[in-house]
């Protein structure tokens, strides 16, 4: 019988994932608790992932270095900092043998990333049709954020767009061992820059603060983030649902730490 873990990894079937995965016993335990050096995941590598999305690669041919861009993992900041670098997809890079020797990937706590991604999706509703922010829509959104039922439904939906797709899916076509990982935090850009300091020069940090923490500068986003975090703090069920949804990302985090 397939374990829940395999079900998620092999299938990546959102429907099954939401409705077939048994949310009980081990399934509710985080990857950190399930796996250890003594009890490693029963997966040799991440090539078994079958993501639908080819990751975007930002690379410097001269430096033979590339950064795999993942939504909600400082990708906008990286684009702004590494100006002049070339953008392509992992698929194209593989097909045309353009894959740099040094590949970097920013990985983020899955629950934290889901909150950020869901915040972005909700905020977007206030900016579309009409293109400028409609005060009416903002008021409605604030109203919805007061509804526990609505917030719980969001955790049931889980994945709503690219920003909430599992980050490990963006590694499609790559072997996880050939990538240098950077954990997402407020200093991640500096750490990447330090890592690349020998091979890359003229990094423009001027727009760094604008892009690394956009959420903190927007009152609506701050409120949404607060409401979602409050829900996850008070509802174990909702939090576990999100953790189950991103099991493959927890696996990725564990594999990184095990190596």
């Amino acid at each position: 019988m397939k374990s829940n873990f395999n079900l998620v990894i092999d299938n990546l079937d959102r429907i099954n994932l939401l409705h077939e995965v048994d949310i009980s016993s081990d399934a509710t335990v985080t990857g950190t608790k399930i796996f250890s050096k003594e009890n490693p995941p029963d997966l040799p590598d991440l090539n078994k992932f079958k993501p639908m999305t080819w990751g975007t690669l930002l690379y410097s041919p001269s430096a033979n270095t590339g950064i795999i861009l993942t939504p909600k993992n400082a990708s906008s900041a990286i684009r702004k900092i590494f100006v002049g670098w070339t953008t392509t997809t992992i698929q194209t890079a593989l097909q045309q043998n353009l894959l740099p020797a040094d590949l970097l990937f920013v990985v983020r706590d899955p629950v934290d990333r889901w909150v950020s991604g869901m915040t972005e999706w909700l905020t977007l509703w206030t900016t579309i049709e009409p293109p400028l922010r409609s005060e009416d829509k903002i008021q409605q959104l604030y109203y919805l954020l007061e509804s526990d039922l609505f917030l719980r439904m969001l955790t049931d939906q889980g994945i709503v767009d690219m920003h909430t797709l599992p980050q490990s899916w963006f590694l499609k076509g790559l072997h996880y061992k050939n990538i240098k990982y950077f954990k997402y935090d407020s200093k991640v850009i500096f750490r990447i820059s330090n890592y690349l300091s020998n091979s890359v020069d003229k990094i423009d940090y001027t727009k760094y603060n604008t892009y690394i923490n956009q959420t903190n500068t927007d009152e609506l986003k701050m409120n949404i983030t607060l409401k979602l975090n409050e829900l996850l703090a008070r509802s174990e069920e909702c939090k576990l649902r999100i953790m189950d949804l991103y099991k493959c990302d927890y696996t990725l985090l564990n594999l990184i730490e095990l190596n």
Binding site: H19, W125, L141, Y143, S147, D148, Q157, D161
Partner: peptide, 27 residues
């Protein structure tokens, strides 16, 4: 309480529009 809350939600246009962004929920 939930029925009352659902009544309020379906009176909110934004909520109804959002449903079309995640139209497949289950079987």
């Amino acid at each position: 309480a939930r029925v009352s809350e659902m009544h309020r939600l379906i009176e909110t246009e934004l909520f109804l529009l959002m449903l079309f962004d995640f139209p497949i929920n289950n079987a």
